[in-house]
Design a protein around this nucleic acid. Structure first.
Lengths: 143, 143
DNA sequence: TTCTAATTTGTTATTATTACAATTTAGTAT
DNA sequence: ATACTAAATTGTAATAATAACAAATTAGAA
Protein backbone atom coordinates (compact mmCIF):
# COMPACT_ATOMS: atom_id res chain seq x y z
CA UNK A 1 0.00 0.00 0.00
CA UNK A 2 2.78 2.37 0.87
CA UNK A 3 5.29 0.61 -1.35
CA UNK A 4 5.07 3.26 -4.00
CA UNK A 5 6.00 5.98 -1.54
CA UNK A 6 8.64 3.88 0.17
CA UNK A 7 10.32 3.50 -3.18
CA UNK A 8 10.19 7.20 -3.91
CA UNK A 9 11.94 7.93 -0.63
CA UNK A 10 14.46 5.11 -1.16
CA UNK A 11 15.30 6.38 -4.62
CA UNK A 12 16.28 9.67 -3.08
CA UNK A 13 18.05 8.18 -0.05
CA UNK A 14 15.61 9.84 2.29
CA UNK A 15 15.01 8.12 5.59
CA UNK A 16 11.65 6.36 5.59
CA UNK A 17 9.24 7.47 8.29
CA UNK A 18 5.53 6.93 8.59
CA UNK A 19 4.97 10.69 8.66
CA UNK A 20 6.73 11.21 5.35
CA UNK A 21 4.86 8.33 3.77
CA UNK A 22 1.53 9.73 4.91
CA UNK A 23 2.30 13.19 3.61
CA UNK A 24 3.45 11.85 0.28
CA UNK A 25 0.38 9.66 0.02
CA UNK A 26 -1.86 12.59 0.83
CA UNK A 27 -0.35 14.73 -1.89
CA UNK A 28 -0.50 11.87 -4.35
CA UNK A 29 -4.19 11.35 -3.66
CA UNK A 30 -5.22 15.00 -3.39
CA UNK A 31 -4.22 17.13 -6.31
CA UNK A 32 -5.90 20.16 -4.78
CA UNK A 33 -2.60 21.88 -3.93
CA UNK A 34 -3.24 21.91 -0.18
CA UNK A 35 -1.47 24.19 2.25
CA UNK A 36 0.37 22.99 5.35
CA UNK A 37 -2.64 23.47 7.60
CA UNK A 38 -4.84 21.30 5.43
CA UNK A 39 -2.31 18.49 5.21
CA UNK A 40 -1.68 18.72 8.93
CA UNK A 41 -5.29 18.73 10.08
CA UNK A 42 -6.34 15.97 7.71
CA UNK A 43 -3.51 13.63 8.68
CA UNK A 44 -3.88 14.52 12.36
CA UNK A 45 -7.28 12.80 12.33
CA UNK A 46 -5.74 9.39 11.76
CA UNK A 47 -2.38 10.11 13.39
CA UNK A 48 -3.06 12.28 16.44
CA UNK A 49 0.59 12.47 17.44
CA UNK A 50 1.55 14.25 14.23
CA UNK A 51 3.18 17.63 14.70
CA UNK A 52 2.82 20.64 12.46
CA UNK A 53 6.58 21.07 12.52
CA UNK A 54 6.98 17.61 11.05
CA UNK A 55 4.74 18.56 8.16
CA UNK A 56 6.89 21.62 7.54
CA UNK A 57 10.12 19.63 7.82
CA UNK A 58 8.91 16.78 5.66
CA UNK A 59 7.67 19.03 2.89
CA UNK A 60 11.00 20.82 3.01
CA UNK A 61 13.05 17.69 2.47
CA UNK A 62 10.66 16.46 -0.24
CA UNK A 63 11.03 19.81 -1.93
CA UNK A 64 14.82 19.75 -1.80
CA UNK A 65 14.66 16.38 -3.53
CA UNK A 66 12.28 17.71 -6.14
CA UNK A 67 9.61 15.20 -5.17
CA UNK A 68 7.17 17.97 -4.41
CA UNK A 69 7.10 21.62 -5.34
CA UNK A 70 5.68 24.58 -3.48
CA UNK A 71 3.50 27.16 -5.15
CA UNK A 72 3.40 30.80 -4.13
CA UNK A 73 0.36 31.53 -6.23
CA UNK A 74 -1.97 32.28 -3.32
CA UNK A 75 0.30 34.95 -1.91
CA UNK A 76 -0.42 34.21 1.72
CA UNK A 77 0.76 30.65 2.18
CA UNK A 78 2.63 27.96 0.32
CA UNK A 79 0.62 25.35 -1.52
CA UNK A 80 2.07 21.92 -2.25
CA UNK A 81 2.02 19.76 -5.31
CA UNK A 82 3.57 16.45 -6.31
CA UNK A 83 6.07 17.13 -9.08
CA UNK A 84 4.94 15.22 -12.12
CA UNK A 85 5.82 16.82 -15.39
CA UNK A 86 5.92 20.52 -16.00
CA UNK A 87 2.54 22.20 -15.86
CA UNK A 88 1.11 25.57 -14.95
CA UNK A 89 -1.49 26.64 -12.41
CA UNK A 90 -4.68 28.62 -12.39
CA UNK A 91 -6.05 30.28 -9.26
CA UNK A 92 -9.75 31.12 -9.16
CA UNK A 93 -10.19 34.42 -7.35
CA UNK A 94 -13.75 33.50 -6.46
CA UNK A 95 -13.68 29.98 -5.08
CA UNK A 96 -9.96 29.85 -4.33
CA UNK A 97 -9.40 26.61 -6.22
CA UNK A 98 -5.99 26.01 -7.74
CA UNK A 99 -6.18 24.00 -10.93
CA UNK A 100 -3.53 22.32 -13.03
CA UNK A 101 -3.14 23.78 -16.47
CA UNK A 102 -1.47 21.73 -19.13
CA UNK A 103 -0.30 24.07 -21.82
CA UNK A 104 2.76 24.09 -23.99
CA UNK A 105 5.09 26.96 -23.25
CA UNK A 106 8.29 27.55 -25.18
CA UNK A 107 9.96 28.88 -22.06
CA UNK A 108 9.44 25.81 -19.99
CA UNK A 109 12.56 24.11 -21.25
CA UNK A 110 14.36 25.82 -18.41
CA UNK A 111 16.71 27.81 -20.55
CA UNK A 112 16.52 31.52 -20.91
CA UNK A 113 18.46 34.08 -22.81
CA UNK A 114 20.01 36.84 -20.78
CA UNK A 115 22.44 34.30 -19.39
CA UNK A 116 20.55 33.31 -16.26
CA UNK A 117 20.60 29.66 -15.27
CA UNK A 118 16.98 28.61 -14.86
CA UNK A 119 16.21 25.82 -12.41
CA UNK A 120 12.49 26.30 -11.85
CA UNK A 121 9.68 27.62 -13.98
CA UNK A 122 6.20 28.40 -12.72
CA UNK A 123 3.34 29.87 -14.70
CA UNK A 124 0.51 31.40 -12.71
CA UNK A 125 -2.84 32.35 -14.17
CA UNK A 126 -5.48 34.07 -12.08
CA UNK A 127 -9.11 34.80 -12.85
CA UNK A 128 -12.49 33.13 -12.61
CA UNK A 129 -12.71 29.43 -13.21
CA UNK A 130 -15.14 27.79 -15.57
CA UNK A 131 -17.28 26.53 -12.74
CA UNK A 132 -17.72 29.91 -11.07
CA UNK A 133 -18.58 31.49 -14.42
CA UNK A 134 -21.40 29.02 -14.88
CA UNK A 135 -22.74 29.92 -11.45
CA UNK A 136 -22.58 33.64 -12.33
CA UNK A 137 -24.62 33.11 -15.49
CA UNK A 138 -27.18 31.00 -13.64
CA UNK A 139 -27.67 33.69 -11.04
CA UNK A 140 -28.10 36.36 -13.70
CA UNK A 141 -30.75 34.35 -15.55
CA UNK A 142 -32.66 33.42 -12.44
CA UNK A 143 -32.72 36.95 -11.12
CA UNK B 1 7.90 66.87 -10.85
CA UNK B 2 5.00 64.87 -9.51
CA UNK B 3 2.76 65.77 -12.43
CA UNK B 4 3.21 62.37 -14.04
CA UNK B 5 1.98 60.62 -10.93
CA UNK B 6 -0.80 63.10 -10.28
CA UNK B 7 -2.10 62.32 -13.73
CA UNK B 8 -1.96 58.60 -13.20
CA UNK B 9 -4.07 58.93 -10.07
CA UNK B 10 -6.46 61.39 -11.73
CA UNK B 11 -6.94 59.03 -14.66
CA UNK B 12 -8.12 56.40 -12.24
CA UNK B 13 -10.18 58.76 -10.09
CA UNK B 14 -8.05 58.01 -7.07
CA UNK B 15 -7.78 60.74 -4.49
CA UNK B 16 -4.41 62.45 -4.69
CA UNK B 17 -2.32 62.33 -1.53
CA UNK B 18 1.36 63.02 -1.04
CA UNK B 19 1.85 59.50 0.30
CA UNK B 20 0.43 57.89 -2.82
CA UNK B 21 2.51 60.14 -5.05
CA UNK B 22 5.69 59.26 -3.19
CA UNK B 23 5.01 55.54 -3.36
CA UNK B 24 4.23 55.71 -7.05
CA UNK B 25 7.36 57.75 -7.70
CA UNK B 26 9.45 55.30 -5.75
CA UNK B 27 8.20 52.35 -7.76
CA UNK B 28 8.66 54.26 -11.00
CA UNK B 29 12.27 55.06 -10.13
CA UNK B 30 13.19 51.71 -8.60
CA UNK B 31 12.48 48.70 -10.73
CA UNK B 32 13.95 46.38 -8.13
CA UNK B 33 10.55 44.97 -7.12
CA UNK B 34 10.79 46.17 -3.53
CA UNK B 35 8.74 44.77 -0.67
CA UNK B 36 6.59 46.88 1.66
CA UNK B 37 9.34 47.22 4.23
CA UNK B 38 11.79 48.63 1.72
CA UNK B 39 9.34 51.15 0.32
CA UNK B 40 8.32 52.15 3.83
CA UNK B 41 11.80 52.58 5.29
CA UNK B 42 13.12 54.44 2.26
CA UNK B 43 10.24 56.91 2.13
CA UNK B 44 10.20 57.26 5.91
CA UNK B 45 13.61 58.97 5.67
CA UNK B 46 12.18 61.96 3.88
CA UNK B 47 8.67 61.74 5.31
CA UNK B 48 9.00 60.69 8.94
CA UNK B 49 5.27 60.75 9.57
CA UNK B 50 4.62 58.01 7.04
CA UNK B 51 2.91 54.93 8.41
CA UNK B 52 3.45 51.38 7.32
CA UNK B 53 -0.30 50.90 7.15
CA UNK B 54 -0.50 53.69 4.59
CA UNK B 55 2.02 51.89 2.42
CA UNK B 56 -0.09 48.74 2.60
CA UNK B 57 -3.30 50.66 1.89
CA UNK B 58 -1.84 52.68 -0.95
CA UNK B 59 -0.34 49.68 -2.68
CA UNK B 60 -3.68 47.94 -2.33
CA UNK B 61 -5.62 50.69 -4.08
CA UNK B 62 -2.94 51.02 -6.77
CA UNK B 63 -3.19 47.31 -7.31
CA UNK B 64 -6.95 47.34 -7.62
CA UNK B 65 -6.57 49.96 -10.30
CA UNK B 66 -3.95 47.89 -12.09
CA UNK B 67 -1.37 50.63 -11.72
CA UNK B 68 0.94 48.31 -9.85
CA UNK B 69 1.06 44.56 -9.52
CA UNK B 70 2.24 42.39 -6.67
CA UNK B 71 4.54 39.45 -7.18
CA UNK B 72 4.47 36.34 -5.01
CA UNK B 73 7.71 35.02 -6.42
CA UNK B 74 9.70 35.31 -3.21
CA UNK B 75 7.26 33.20 -1.25
CA UNK B 76 7.62 35.11 2.00
CA UNK B 77 6.42 38.60 1.14
CA UNK B 78 4.80 40.49 -1.68
CA UNK B 79 7.03 42.42 -4.07
CA UNK B 80 5.72 45.38 -6.01
CA UNK B 81 6.14 46.43 -9.59
CA UNK B 82 4.74 49.20 -11.76
CA UNK B 83 2.54 47.61 -14.42
CA UNK B 84 4.02 48.42 -17.77
CA UNK B 85 3.45 45.84 -20.41
CA UNK B 86 3.38 42.12 -19.80
CA UNK B 87 6.71 40.66 -18.77
CA UNK B 88 7.97 37.80 -16.67
CA UNK B 89 10.27 37.66 -13.65
CA UNK B 90 13.42 35.86 -12.66
CA UNK B 91 14.42 35.33 -9.04
CA UNK B 92 18.06 34.64 -8.29
CA UNK B 93 18.26 32.12 -5.46
CA UNK B 94 21.73 33.34 -4.56
CA UNK B 95 21.57 37.13 -4.42
CA UNK B 96 17.80 37.43 -4.15
CA UNK B 97 17.49 39.86 -7.03
CA UNK B 98 14.27 39.87 -9.01
CA UNK B 99 14.83 40.73 -12.64
CA UNK B 100 12.44 41.59 -15.43
CA UNK B 101 12.38 39.06 -18.24
CA UNK B 102 11.05 40.10 -21.59
CA UNK B 103 10.13 36.97 -23.46
CA UNK B 104 7.33 36.16 -25.80
CA UNK B 105 4.90 33.66 -24.40
CA UNK B 106 1.91 32.39 -26.34
CA UNK B 107 -0.13 32.13 -23.16
CA UNK B 108 0.23 35.72 -22.17
CA UNK B 109 -2.72 36.89 -24.20
CA UNK B 110 -4.82 36.16 -21.14
CA UNK B 111 -6.98 33.56 -22.77
CA UNK B 112 -6.83 29.93 -21.87
CA UNK B 113 -8.60 26.85 -23.00
CA UNK B 114 -10.41 24.88 -20.36
CA UNK B 115 -12.91 27.69 -20.14
CA UNK B 116 -11.35 29.70 -17.33
CA UNK B 117 -11.44 33.48 -17.61
CA UNK B 118 -7.86 34.66 -17.18
CA UNK B 119 -7.30 38.11 -15.73
CA UNK B 120 -3.67 37.91 -14.66
CA UNK B 121 -0.67 36.03 -15.94
CA UNK B 122 2.65 35.77 -14.17
CA UNK B 123 5.66 33.77 -15.25
CA UNK B 124 8.24 33.04 -12.58
CA UNK B 125 11.70 31.71 -13.29
CA UNK B 126 14.09 30.82 -10.49
CA UNK B 127 17.75 29.94 -10.61
CA UNK B 128 21.13 31.63 -10.58
CA UNK B 129 21.47 34.96 -12.33
CA UNK B 130 24.17 35.76 -14.84
CA UNK B 131 26.01 37.93 -12.37
CA UNK B 132 26.22 35.28 -9.65
CA UNK B 133 27.40 32.71 -12.19
CA UNK B 134 30.31 34.95 -13.14
CA UNK B 135 31.25 35.26 -9.48
CA UNK B 136 31.13 31.45 -9.11
CA UNK B 137 33.51 30.92 -12.01
CA UNK B 138 35.91 33.55 -10.71
CA UNK B 139 36.04 31.91 -7.31
CA UNK B 140 36.69 28.50 -8.81
CA UNK B 141 39.61 29.75 -10.90
CA UNK B 142 41.20 31.67 -8.07
CA UNK B 143 41.08 28.80 -5.63
C1' DT C 1 -14.66 78.61 3.79
C1' DT C 2 -17.17 74.76 5.46
C1' DC C 3 -18.23 70.06 5.47
C1' DT C 4 -17.84 65.14 5.00
C1' DA C 5 -16.28 61.03 3.40
C1' DA C 6 -12.01 59.10 2.65
C1' DT C 7 -7.28 58.72 4.15
C1' DT C 8 -3.58 58.44 7.35
C1' DT C 9 -1.74 57.02 11.51
C1' DG C 10 -0.40 54.02 15.38
C1' DT C 11 -1.55 50.19 17.81
C1' DT C 12 -3.15 45.66 18.39
C1' DA C 13 -4.40 41.09 16.45
C1' DT C 14 -3.75 37.38 13.34
C1' DT C 15 -1.44 33.96 10.68
C1' DA C 16 2.29 31.45 8.37
C1' DT C 17 6.65 30.05 9.21
C1' DT C 18 11.06 29.32 11.70
C1' DA C 19 14.02 28.32 15.74
C1' DC C 20 15.00 25.44 19.27
C1' DA C 21 15.59 21.78 22.82
C1' DA C 22 14.00 17.41 24.51
C1' DT C 23 12.36 12.93 23.20
C1' DT C 24 11.96 9.28 20.00
C1' DT C 25 13.23 6.38 16.16
C1' DA C 26 15.30 4.43 11.59
C1' DG C 27 18.74 2.02 10.06
C1' DT C 28 23.50 0.49 10.63
C1' DA C 29 26.99 -2.17 12.99
C1' DT C 30 27.76 -5.58 16.28
C1' DA D 1 18.30 -9.91 17.87
C1' DT D 2 20.64 -5.71 20.39
C1' DA D 3 22.87 -1.62 20.98
C1' DC D 4 24.15 2.64 19.09
C1' DT D 5 23.97 7.14 16.83
C1' DA D 6 22.64 10.43 13.83
C1' DA D 7 18.53 12.04 12.16
C1' DA D 8 13.61 12.83 12.75
C1' DT D 9 9.66 14.06 15.52
C1' DT D 10 7.40 16.73 18.81
C1' DG D 11 5.75 20.84 21.32
C1' DT D 12 6.64 25.29 22.43
C1' DA D 13 8.30 29.77 21.84
C1' DA D 14 9.89 33.44 18.57
C1' DT D 15 9.61 35.96 14.28
C1' DA D 16 7.73 38.39 10.46
C1' DA D 17 4.21 39.81 7.11
C1' DT D 18 -0.20 41.37 6.91
C1' DA D 19 -4.91 42.69 8.48
C1' DA D 20 -8.18 44.90 11.68
C1' DC D 21 -9.44 48.77 14.03
C1' DA D 22 -10.39 53.43 16.06
C1' DA D 23 -8.96 58.17 16.45
C1' DA D 24 -7.00 62.16 14.11
C1' DT D 25 -6.27 64.40 9.76
C1' DT D 26 -7.13 65.94 5.07
C1' DA D 27 -8.67 66.14 -0.09
C1' DG D 28 -11.89 67.88 -2.72
C1' DA D 29 -16.75 69.02 -3.39
C1' DA D 30 -20.44 72.30 -2.14
Amino acid sequence: MYEKYVNILKDHSIKITSQRLEILKYLDEHHTHPNVEEIYSELKKKHPSLSRTTVYNSLEILKKNRIVQSLTISGSELRYDIEEGLHHHFLCKKCGAILDISIACPNMDRTLDGGHRVEEVQGYFKGICKNCQTKEKGRRING
